[in-house]
């Protein structure tokens, strides 16, 4: 039996042909296996119906100056703030270098009177207060997260409390003067 063991076959006249065949067979098996795995992995990616819900269009016309609106996008709340001039001014006058996450207000808005952000605190994921009338907006007139006390200003930037980053601005664009498409 040992003389038939694979490792001791001398490579010779038939040897190279057998090696080529085995190599090709092994390569085919490898390629086949690799290609076969992809559908299993890709099936875990978002399905077409999930992707179809990946953009949300929001009509801004009913949101008056000074009003804030919450809409859902990809399962998360989006804060839309139709900022009055005092809020815009307060946001633009802040010394950017003193911020924990330095970002000028101009980098966070496309039109200064409209602030659009994902309403999820960057600390541990609670939804900050401030978007409903009567909510506590915190000392900067922005948003206040009740879970661990993170405080955001009128540009949604972190000013006090444990959150490391500003409230995230999602990708969006104005499809008209009074409508945006998020995502």
């Amino acid at each position: 039996m040992t003389d038939l063991a694979h490792s001791q076959i001398p490579a010779g006249h038939g040897g190279t042909r057998r090696d080529f065949l085995l190599l090709t067979a092994g390569a085919l098996a490898g390629v086949g296996a690799a290609v076969s795995i992809w559908p299993f992995i890709d099936s875990l990616n978002p399905a077409r119906d999930t992707l179809a819900l990946s953009t949300t269009e929001v009509d801004l016309a009913p949101v008056k100056v000074g009003q804030r609106l919450t809409v859902a996008w990809r399962g998360k709340p989006i804060f839309v703030d139709h900022r009055p001039p005092e809020e815009i001014k307060a946001a633009q006058e802040v010394d950017v270098a003193s911020l924990r996450d330095p970002q000028p207000d101009s980098a966070r808005v496309k039109k200064p009177e409209w602030l659009v952000m994902i309403g999820v605190c960057t600390h541990l994921g609670c939804i900050p207060l401030g978007n409903k009338t009567g909510d506590d907006r915190g000392p900067f007139g922005g948003w206040f997260c009740p879970c661990h006390g993170s405080i955001y200003d009128t540009s949604g930037r972190i000013r006090q409390g444990p959150a490391p980053l500003n409230l995230v601005v999602p990708p969006y664009e104005f499809t008209s003067d009074t409508a945006i498409k998020i995502g």
Partner: peptide
């Protein structure tokens, strides 16, 4: 089984979702 819903009201539809919407479902 990651995409299937074992409830009488939803099972058939979840299988159709697998067939139509899930990548390579």
């Amino acid at each position: 089984a990651m995409h299937y819903t074992p409830h009488a009201d939803l099972a058939f539809e979840s299988v159709e979702r697998i067939m139509r919407d899930v990548n390579y479902g």
